[in-house]
Amino acid sequence: MALTSRAVVATAYGGPEVLRLIDVDPGDPGPGDVLVEVRAAGVNPTDWKGYAGVYGTNPARLPMRLGYEVSGVVSAVGPSVRWLSPGDEIIAWRVSGGYADRIVVSEQVTVRRPRHLDWPAASGLLLAGTTAVHTLVATGTHDGDVVLVHGGSGGVGRMVVQLAVLRGAQVIATASPRHHSDLRDLGATPVAYGEGLLDRVREAVRSTGPVTVAIDTVGTDEALDTSVALVADRARVATIAGFRRAGDLGIKALGGGPGADPGNDVREAARAQLAELASDGSLDVRVAQTYPLSEVAQAHRDGQAGHAAGKLVLVP
């Protein structure tokens, strides 16, 4: 009997109301592929941007499968698989259609599940983590830098904070006050966003020295304007969200947005490094909330609201 799987699809372009949970055949693993029993799937802005039409509205892409990162257990392997066996616990990114019970993925996009991360946290490591690494590489962040991170309590921002500290940088991170204690624990100096941000950051840098790098994960005018006001070298200012103004400001746009550098080689090379850091406890993934697959629309609404302190995760 063929295996079946539930999977989330977008049946049209629009908001979370277009999402449906349907039955699909996950298929058999081909050469170099493995079949994964999904234990958790990370939720990311790029998931809802796809069916919102940010990347175009080609009807041929519908119904659209969602989900780029998962954690799970290998249940079957295809021919030519070299290092995985049934029963192995893995995380995988970049995959296609990860919002599902089962999914076939290439062995090449997997790493072993870090022992310090449970299933939901493991599913949230790679997309945010590789994005964070890309921002630090693109801005040349190193020991002695003073890094301003906008959105320090979010999935990507929290990764940027930790990885910058591990590189020897001093970090100032913007977040709402309820997240300041967590940011201090990670080694950052927290600053509340909102009116007067520039003055608050200038006050904070009295003890650190001038800001040399700014990394924006939220894309607001406040974040962009503050960044360019403080960092002398605009090649060391990067955004993963403010694509509309990046060109005019002369800063780096990173990711999948219009005109942005996708950084594929950097991100793919970072997988093993991130898994190692998570395995020895040097890197923490905070899960803000988990949802069953049937509540995917609510998960996306919560993600679009932008106030989650960490990752949102679907648990089949």
Rank of each mutant, 00 (worst) to 15 (best):
A2S: 14
V8F: 01
V8H: 03
G14V: 05
G15W: 02
P16K: 00
L35K: 01
G42M: 13
V43H: 04
G53A: 10
Y55D: 11
G56L: 14
N58C: 09
P59L: 10
A60W: 01
S71Q: 05
V73H: 04
P86Y: 04
G87L: 08
D88G: 03
I90M: 08
W93D: 06
W93F: 14
G97N: 03
Y99F: 15
R102W: 07
S106N: 06
G124A: 12
L126W: 04
A132D: 02
H134P: 13
L136P: 14
A138I: 03
L148V: 08
L148W: 04
R158L: 09
R158N: 14
M159F: 00
V161L: 08
G168P: 05
A173S: 08
A173E: 11
L183V: 10
R184L: 08
G187L: 07
T189V: 15
L197S: 00
R200N: 09
V201F: 01
T212W: 10
D216F: 14
T217R: 06
T217M: 10
T217D: 10
T217V: 07
V218C: 14
E222M: 13
A223P: 09
D225L: 12
A235K: 09
R236Q: 08
T239K: 04
A241R: 10
G247L: 10
L249Q: 06
G255N: 03
A260E: 06
D265C: 01
D265A: 15
E268L: 15
Q273H: 13
Q273R: 14
L274R: 01
E276A: 15
D280T: 13
D284T: 14
T290E: 11
Y291M: 06
E295A: 15
Q298L: 15
R301I: 11
D302W: 14
G303R: 04
A308V: 04
K311Q: 09
L312M: 07
